[in-house]
Design a protein around this nucleic acid. Structure first.
Length: 359
DNA sequence: AATACGTGGCA
DNA sequence: TTGCCAAGTAT
């Protein structure tokens, strides 16, 4: 018979890692529940995002949408509002769609099988394994950035962990290590080690519970393994954003529902000449800077009025309705440059991140 | 297989 | 200021 599951590997350091995890783990709010929905939301928010950033978002999101059904009933705009500032907005749109699928096809309960979980939008091998192992105790491995780094060092897997070859090796290792009992704690222990001690730079090997088993440490290569993956070069982008005001409202446009900042609202923005076809441009209100992925955007915010006879794209949004629209980060900064008050306080995760850079 | 997809914090 | 990083998924 073909052996699809790699043979289970028994390692001497497993109990040390688990003991360390039980003692040293951080008291994260999503570790206080076995509710697959709450764990799922945390896993999606944590994709490529730090714990410190996620925590307030997770609390607000679960307060507003305490159950899968509550999320499934919501309008997409409201879901995006609660995601606004977290980035990678397709995560929120997929989470919302998946919640509706769970209600319509799984009776409102997060599925218990790998295949059913993987069929949901926005859930890949990592998230499926994390939710099923932590919430239901299904013995599935996970490989995220942390686990990849930890296993690459323990087993001296060289090369870029994102390359197909290394990734295959790391998943095979992870599969072989995951225990039949308590897979959730095991997976979290590996992730916690990577997040706290086995850091990308300057790993703290002295207090590491599995140092003696670590091939990279033995070879003195813990700073070199795994090798870093190349990053795209940053490009500078300059654009102009138009601030149009009328009767206590501002003109905003909604970006297309896919791609960059999909579904989010923003000021009309673009090259100066393209804005000038639609608007009469007045005073410059300020410049704001915003980095998105590999783009460094410098945005000049100008007062503007509609040209006579030009049909305007977008919607006049009363200022008091701004909290109900998902705004892009660059839109918040541009509005701040125009001295337009932002929805914040108890309603927002962040304080004064929006800053007028110059005048 | 390679690329698109956000943001804030930190050295 | 610039570059790099943080619990990935979709195409």
């Amino acid at each position: 018979m073909l052996c699809l599951v790699p043979p289970r590997r028994k390692v001497a350091w497993a109990s040390r890692l688990l003991a360390w995890y039980r003692r040293a783990r951080r008291a994260l709010p999503w570790r206080r529940t076995r509710d697959p929905y709450r764990i799922w939301v945390s896993e999606v928010m944590l994709q490529q995002t730090t714990v410190a950033t996620v925590t307030p978002y997770w609390r607000r999101f679960l307060r507003r949408f305490p159950t899968v059904r509550a999320l499934a009933r919501a309008e997409e705009d409201e879901v995006l509002v609660l995601w606004s500032g977290l980035g990678y907005y397709s995560r929120a749109r997929n989470l919302h769609r998946a919640a509706r699928e769970i209600v319509s096809r799984h009776g409102g309960r997060f599925p218990r099988t790998l295949d059913a979980a993987l069929a949901l939008p926005g859930i890949g091998r990592y998230t499926a394994g994390a939710v099923l192992s932590i919430a239901y105790g299904v013995p599935l491995a996970v490989v995220d950035g942390n686990v990849a780094r930890v296993l690459a060092r323990l087993f001296l897997v060289r090369g870029d962990p994102r390359s197909p070859r290394a990734a295959r090796r790391l998943w095979t290792l992870a599969d072989s290590l995951v225990p039949a009992v308590g897979p959730g704690d095991w997976n979290q222990a590996l992730m916690e080690l990577g997040a706290t001690l086995c850091a990308p730079d300057s790993p703290r090997c002295a207090p590491c519970p599995v140092r003696s088993a670590c091939r990279a440490h033995r070879a003195g290569l813990q700073e070199k393994v795994p090798s870093a993956s190349p990053r795209p070069k940053t490009v500078a982008v300059e654009e102009t954003a138009a601030l149009l005001r009328r009767d206590g409202a501002v003109l905003l446009v909604q970006r297309p529902g896919w791609g960059l900042l999909g579904g989010l609202w923003d000021l009309p923005a673009g090259k100066p000449e393209s804005l000038a076809r639609r608007y009469r441009v007045g005073l410059t209100l300020g410049q704001v800077r915003h980095a998105i992925l590999n783009r460094r955007i410098t945005r000049t915010v100008v007062e503007a009025e509609a040209r006579r006879g030009v049909r305007l794209e977008g919607r006049w949004v009363p200022l008091r309705d701004l909290p109900r629209l998902p705004l892009a980060g660059a839109a918040r900064k541009a509005l701040a440059a125009g001295r337009i008050p932002q929805p914040r306080g108890a309603d927002r995760a962040h304080g004064g991140a929006d800053r007028r850079d110059s005048g």
